[in-house]
Simulated assay, not measured.
Amino acid sequence: MIEIVVTLIAVLEAAGLVVLWLLLVRARRDLEELQRRVDTRQSLMNGGREAVKTVWGAASLLRKKGFRGAVLTSIEDLAGWAQVERPDLAQLTSAGHVAIAFSDIEGSTALNERLGDRAWVKLLGRHERLVGKFVTAHGGHIVKSQGDGFMIAFAEAEQAVRCGLDVQDALGDSAGSLGRERVRVRIGIHMGRSVRRGDDLFGRNVAMAARVAGQADGGEVLLSAEVRDAVADEPGIAVTGAREVELKGFHGAHHLYTVERVR
C-alpha cells in the first residue's frame, strides 16, 4: 500500500514538473511576442518621427525658399558641405595628390525662372547624366552633387582637365545640348596634397577649388597654378589665357589659367 502511495506521489510530482515546464515555455513565448510587438511599435514610432521631421523640414525649406530655392545650390554650398564631411579621398592616389573640380550652370536662377520648375528639373537630370558619363570615362568620382552643382575628385590633374574639356565640348556641340536648351557651365579645378579625413588641409584645398570655379565664366575650364603646372606638357591640352585675381579667404593675388583642347 505504501509503495502504491509513493508511486502515485512520484507520478503527480512528475506531472507537476511537466505542467510547470509547459507553463514556462508558454510564458517565454508570450514574453518574446510582447517584446517583438514593443520593438515593432518603437520602430514605427521612430520611423514615423523621422518621416515627420523630414516632411516638416522639406515643407519649411519650401516655405522659406520656394521650390526653386530648394533645388538650387551653389559651389559655395558644396564646398561648405565638404569641409564639414571631409570624405577620405587620399585613397585615389598613393602620392596623396587629389585634383578637385567644381562645376555649375551659369545663370541657373534666371534659366530656372524662364523654364519653370518642371522643365528645370528635367534639364538637371540630363545635365547630371552628361557630367556623370564623362566623370566615369576619366576615372573620377562625384563626391557630392546638388541641383546644378558638382564636386568631383580625380587622382590626376590631367584626368580632371580632360573631363572638363569633354563636358564643355559636349555642351558646345549641337548634339550635346540639354534638350532644347543651351546651357553654359563653368568649371574650376585645383589640386592639393594629403587630402584626408580630419585634416584641415582638405578644407583649404576644397575652398580653393571652389574659389577657382567661382571665377570661371560659362564655357570655361579654369585652372589654378598647381593644375596648370601639372598639365603644361600634356599633349592635346593648351593653356590659352591667364588672369590675376583675389580669392576670398586667401591672401594675396592668385594666377588662374584658361585651358582648351588642341585640335
Rank of each mutant, 00 (worst) to 15 (best):
Gly96Cys: 08
Thr40Asp: 09
Lys122Met: 09
Leu34Ile: 02
Leu34Ser: 12
Ile75Pro: 04
Gly96Pro: 00
Leu34Gln: 10
Leu34Glu: 12
Arg36Pro: 00
Asn112Phe: 08
Ala70Tyr: 07
Val52Asp: 13
Ser108Phe: 00
Glu33Ser: 10
Ala58Val: 14
Trp56Phe: 15
Gln35Pro: 02
Thr40His: 09
Ala90Phe: 07
Ala90Tyr: 02
Leu78Asp: 00
Ile105Trp: 04
Arg41Cys: 11
Gly57Lys: 05
Ser108Pro: 03
Lys122Asp: 14
Ala119Tyr: 05
Gly96Asp: 04
Trp81Tyr: 15
Leu62Trp: 05
Glu113Gly: 03
Lys53Cys: 11
Lys53Arg: 14
Arg29Leu: 09
Glu113Arg: 06
Leu130Trp: 00
Leu89Ser: 01
Gly132Val: 05
Trp81Met: 07
Arg36Thr: 08
Ser43Met: 15
Arg114Gly: 06
Val98Gly: 01
Trp81Lys: 04
Ala59Thr: 12
Gly107His: 08
Ala82Asp: 00
Glu76Ile: 04
Arg129Gly: 01
Leu111Pro: 02
Arg68Cys: 01
Ser60Asn: 15
Asp77Pro: 00
Gln91Cys: 10
Asp77Ala: 13
Leu61Asp: 10
Glu32Ala: 08
Ser103Asn: 00
Gly66Trp: 04
Arg41Val: 13
Gly116His: 08
Glu32Leu: 10
Arg126Gly: 13
Ala82Ile: 02
Leu72Asp: 05
His127Pro: 05
Arg36Gln: 12
Gly80Val: 04
Ser94Lys: 09
Asp39Glu: 14
Thr54Trp: 11
Lys53Val: 14
